[in-house]
């Protein structure tokens, strides 16, 4: 046990960091992405096929060095299709970044996204969760089974098209008619 020490890294804030946006510009523009901002973070939107290159760059450039994958959140944007939000954090600089990958509707329900498990082992369960909740296929994922839902239940509850009652019924009666019958 060592004596408690003060936080040795730069203190971050839960607000978008303008300096980070400048640092990102070179990398993101080269990949055809665009830099925006959310209420709390800088947001980078890239096409699906550039995701791996971008993440590799984020991880390896020493000015960025994003070494932790905090979160992977899927979202069903309705007419715009699905989207995946990755949140990265850099211990060295105290930066946090959101990466958005848009999955246009024509891909659905077979949207394919390259897995990040090779770069970030933490992505494993996050991707499994997104896969079962939204029906996204993460190509190259070692074990893309259902995580929270039953193993043979192939419904995607967090899609907006998926009403609650149907899900509740389907858990009980696999082949029965959806919806209430009374």
């Amino acid at each position: 046990m060592s004596k408690a020490s003060a936080f040795p890294y730069p203190v971050g804030t839960q607000a978008p960091n303008a300096k980070l946006a400048e640092l990102l510009a070179a990398l993101v523009n080269g990949l055809g992405g665009r830099i925006g901002r959310t209420t709390t973070d800088v947001d980078v939107t890239v096409p699906v096929d550039k995701l791996e290159t971008l993440v590799r760059g984020l991880r390896e450039r020493s000015a960025l060095s994003f070494d932790m994958l905090r979160n992977v959140a899927g979202a069903d944007l309705g007419d715009e299709g699905l989207a995946l939000k990755y949140h990265f954090y850099s211990f060295k600089h105290g930066h946090c970044l959101q990466v958005t990958v848009a999955l246009p509707p024509h891909q659905h329900p077979h949207a394919e996204v390259p897995t990040l498990t090779g770069l970030f082992p933490a992505a494993d369960w996050h991707e499994r969760e997104a896969a079962e909740m939204f029906g996204i296929t993460f190509t190259g994922h070692p074990n893309l089974k259902n995580l929270l839902l039953e193993e043979d239940l192939h419904i995607h509850p967090l899609l907006k098209a998926h009403p609650l009652q149907v899900a509740e019924l389907k858990q009980g009666i696999e082949d029965g008619p959806a919806g209430f019958t009374f």
């Binding site: 020490s5 936080f7 890294y9 203190v11 971050g12 839960q14 211990f91 946090c96």
Partner: peptide, 13 residues
């Protein structure tokens, strides 16, 4: 593991 990382300090709210 020895890394004094706590959200209360690293990204205070």
């Amino acid at each position: 593991t020895g890394l004094p990382w706590d959200v209360r300090r690293a990204e205070p709210y």
